[in-house]
Design a protein around this nucleic acid. Structure first.
Length: 341
DNA sequence: GACCCGTGGTC
DNA sequence: TGACCAAGGGT
């Protein structure tokens, strides 16, 4: 008698599950802490496991409970998040912690979780299933790809999302939704990969329509990519008594709310001419590429609010990667050792 | 629904 | 080496 695809997948997961700091071992009795599940799921949004793992530990060490995080100033949470990108997540993380602490704990239902800041369809379903053992259909991009291939749904994901979700429910029928979610996501990350699926290692290959069709990598079809425009600007390094003048970026927009070097607005187009500045870096964001000149200035611009950050405490300023790179390039051009990691 | 929003790894 | 990709959410 053949095992069901669901059981084959769950057995494969139990045998191959990666050891992640926020994951209770498959078959563990104790339910995971909802705070840990929520924090890891938000950190993992559009971010790889390898990047998140050490940063998750650091967050937990600094704020052991959701109440502790809620009691921290927003600026400290943003600083702890520095380098992880998509900084709206950090603002929403703090807002969510405040809401949860205020109501005395996490909601234990998908709908209750979905109403919190920074928790969308995916995260609500994942936390409800993994932390609270709720029935849920957890669908992320991994699950979309696995399901599209398993049922050979060849339309672009954005057109087939409703069908993919209906089909995904097949995998969640009658099983632990939290375990199935993690099993499907692990499968997508390690075997049913976007460009190079390893069907020889896949526990679902026997019954997978895309594998039978002979070209699983072509499912789902990839939408044409959009052009990435160029922008350019200048950042100022202003030093006084071993400290650097920093500012805080506006709440909305790129690097919203983060600590930053002061500088010019970023203009459209490639930089006019290389050279003048002491240093320059190139940084690629999601939807534009930036060439940033880095220049020394004697004084802060008038009417610009900011603070003097001692060089030996630069790491505590919580600078996003763009400005870490800018300062490193500036110091290198000057022949000085960098104090940044 | 289209667009905005980071960063590091991979090939 | 540039393009692709990642446990998405907000507007």
């Amino acid at each position: 008698m053949r095992k069901s695809p669901r059981q084959q997948l769950l057995e494969h997961y139990r045998a191959h599950a990666r050891d992640l700091p926020w994951r209770t071992p498959p078959g563990a009795k104790a339910a995971p802490d909802p705070y840990h599940v929520w924090l890891s799921e938000v950190m993992l949004q559009q971010t790889t496991v390898a990047t998140v793992a050490p940063r998750f530990d650091a967050f937990l060490a600094r704020w052991p409970t959701v109440e502790a995080m809620a009691a921290a100033p927003l600026e400290e949470v943003l600083g702890q998040w520095a380098g992880l990108g998509y900084y709206a997540r950090a603002r929403n993380l703090h807002a969510c912690a405040v809401a949860v602490a205020g109501r005395g704990g996490f909601p234990d239902s998908e709908a209750g979780l979905r109403a919190l800041p920074g928790i969308g369809d995916y995260t609500a379903a994942a936390v409800a299933a993994i932390a609270f053992g709720r029935e849920a259909v957890v669908v992320d991009t991994n699950v979309e790809r696995v399901v599209a291939r398993y049922f050979a749904i060849r339309r672009p994901v954005k057109d087939a999302r409703a069908e993919i979700r209906e089909r995904a429910a097949f995998f969640y029928e009658g099983v632990d939704a939290g375990a199935m979610a993690q099993a499907l996501m692990d499968l997508g990350a390690t075997i049913c990969r976007p460009r190079t699926p390893d069907c020889a290692a896949c526990p679902l290959a026997d019954t997978c329509a895309a594998h039978a069709g002979g070209d699983p990598a072509s499912i789902p079809p990839r939408p044409p990519r959009k052009a990435r425009p160029e922008r350019h600007g200048t950042a100022f390094v202003i030093e006084r008594d071993g400290a650097i003048f920093l500012v805080r970026r506006p709440e909305k927009g790129v690097l919203g709310g983060m600590a930053a070097l002061p500088g010019s607005a970023w203009r459209d187009g490639a930089p006019p001419a290389p050279a003048a500045a002491a240093a320059a870096i190139r940084h690629v964001f999601t939807h534009f590429a930036l060439t940033l000149a880095v220049e020394s200035r004697p004084e802060p611009p008038r009417d610009v609010e900011g603070w003097w950050q001692p060089r030996d405490r630069l790491a505590q300023a919580g600078l996003p990667t763009l400005y870490v790179k800018a300062l490193a390039a500036f110091d290198a051009a000057r022949g000085a050792p960098s104090l940044l990691p």
